[in-house]
């Protein structure tokens, strides 16, 4: 999994590239946790280049979002998922608890509002 980040207005935009599954969930979680330790509270996970998300990836985004909401009043949302990834968010019910946006800028704007 290739992970890159761009921070603007205190919102961390994290760009993921690859499959988000049992093999890669650990590195994504570690990356976000490190940024939380650094003081970041708001995250947009850009999934334009995520080809598939498995339950391991779903759990990471759910757990991090829950912790951010409970401990720092922060949040995490999803941007630009491919149709099959969006479908997994829908059938798992995660679209009911996490915001999913068409693109990363709209997602970041959502936090600023």
């Amino acid at each position: 999994m290739k992970i890159t980040e761009n921070v603007q207005n205190n919102v961390s935009r994290i760009f993921l590239d690859g499959r988000f599954d049992a093999n890669t969930c650990g590195e994504v979680e570690q990356f976000i946790r490190k940024r939380i330790d650094d003081g970041m509270h708001y995250f947009v996970l850009d999934m334009e280049n995520v080809s598939f998300i498995a339950s391991a990836g779903l759990r990471v985004v759910l757990v991090i979002a829950k912790e951010l909401r409970n401990t720092s009043r922060g949040d995490l949302c999803i941007a630009s998922p491919q149709p099959n990834v969006r479908k997994v968010f829908e059938i798992s019910g995660i679209d009911n608890v996490l915001q999913i946006h068409e693109d990363v800028e709209r997602a970041a704007k959502g936090f600023l509002q």
Partner: peptide, 16 residues
């Protein structure tokens, strides 16, 4: 999946 995270440490799993 969602309940599994909400009910952390209740000791169960999910279909996915």
């Amino acid at each position: 999946m969602v309940e599994n995270v909400e009910k952390e440490n209740w000791g169960h799993s999910n279909m996915f």
